[in-house]
Simulated scan of single mutants.
Amino acid sequence: MMEWLEVHRGDAPLVISFPHTGTLIPLEIEKRLTSPWLARKDADWWIDRLYGFARELGATTVRTAISRTVIDVNRDPSGVSLYPGQATTELCPTTTFDGEPLYAGDGPDEAEVARRRATYFEPYHAALQAELARLRTDHGRVVLYEAHSIRSLVPRLFEGELPNFNLGTNSGASCDGALTAAVEAACDASGYSRVTNGRFKGGWTTRHYGQPQTGIHALQMELACRGYMDDPATPPTPASWPAPYSDAQAAPMRAALTDVLKACLAFAKP
């Protein structure tokens, strides 16, 4: 297994993908960037730690340690925008979520993007596909759960404060409605705010693998960071972001997410 690709195998019909928790950037790329901090600012901070309990539930986890600035493994590999007409970042991002340039000079050209796809994108998805296929042989249904987070306030991407739970199911196409309803119920019972298929409807992974007719049910959960860590109300700075992870601060959200994943398992194992 490649050092940057982390796969933990479980036997339950649940795969959790962590596409954006990585912060590793090869030196030859990092030296071209405007700022090491900007290059890592939009990571899904501490999400793999927040879901650390998932392995106890028998879940399989797949994580890349490579930063999304190198390549975003949750974007359409063809380069087509997932949200036409809305601000977003590319397969190999050239700006932050706030629109700040990531490269001091030119960004990656087509040949470099292709190399990054072959080096990082394709192995990640080969591993994800292999784990789904492995579990599908033993279970009638398998749930693919995309674990994400984002700052609560990113004016360039959305207006106002983001709800705590942002559930995306590709407008209902990527999973059975019963799974959506079960996850919604777990979210709503927690007391945290929730929206389904709002600003975030699911990235490429959810849309690509979510094929309920074949037994693969995919959904994306985008958490507002304030639910488990300090989330600045003003534009972040190197002094304020990322805030450190605190088990005590994250405990209520971990409890809510435990119920969410149990709802996924109850659907997959009726």
Rank of each mutant, 00 (worst) to 15 (best):
Q129G: 15
H139E: 04
D106I: 11
E131C: 05
S67M: 04
H139W: 09
A126C: 09
P101G: 02
A104Y: 10
V73H: 02
T96P: 02
G79K: 04
G85L: 05
L144E: 05
S78I: 04
E90W: 08
D76P: 06
G99C: 01
Q86E: 15
T69E: 03
R63A: 10
F97M: 11
L128R: 00
L132D: 04
A127F: 03
L82E: 08
A114Y: 06
G99R: 03
D138H: 15
Y145W: 08
R117Y: 02
A65E: 14
T95W: 12
H125A: 01
Y103H: 09
L128I: 10
S78Q: 05
A127I: 01
E100C: 03
T89H: 08
T88D: 15
Y124V: 03
E146Y: 12
I66K: 13
G99F: 13
R117S: 13
A133V: 12
R115E: 13
R134W: 13
E110R: 14
A130K: 06
L128H: 00
E112T: 00
G105L: 09
Y103C: 00
E100A: 12
P84S: 10
E112W: 00
N74F: 08
V73L: 06
Y83R: 13
A147F: 12
R68M: 08
T119Q: 14
Y145R: 07
P101W: 01
Q86L: 15
R136E: 09
S67L: 08
Y120W: 12
R63G: 06
L91G: 04
T88V: 15
S81D: 13
T119C: 14
T69W: 11
A87G: 13
P123A: 02
V113P: 12
P108R: 00
A147K: 09
R141V: 05
D109Y: 06
P77W: 02
V142D: 01
P123V: 01
A104S: 13
S81Q: 08
P77Y: 05
G107S: 01
L132W: 02
A118W: 07
A118S: 09
P101F: 00
V80F: 11
P108G: 02
G105A: 10
E100P: 09
P123I: 06
S81Y: 05
Y145E: 06
D106K: 14
E131P: 05
A118T: 09
L128Q: 00
L82D: 07
L82K: 02
I71E: 05
Y103E: 05
R134N: 04
D106C: 13
Y124R: 04
L135P: 01
A111F: 10
D98G: 06
A114D: 11
D138L: 15
L91D: 07
A130Q: 04
D106R: 14
P101A: 01
D72N: 08
A147P: 04
D106T: 14
E146R: 07
V143M: 05
A65Q: 14
V70S: 00
E131I: 06
T89A: 10
E112L: 03
D109R: 03
T137F: 10
F97T: 12
F97W: 11
E112I: 00
R141I: 03
L144Q: 07
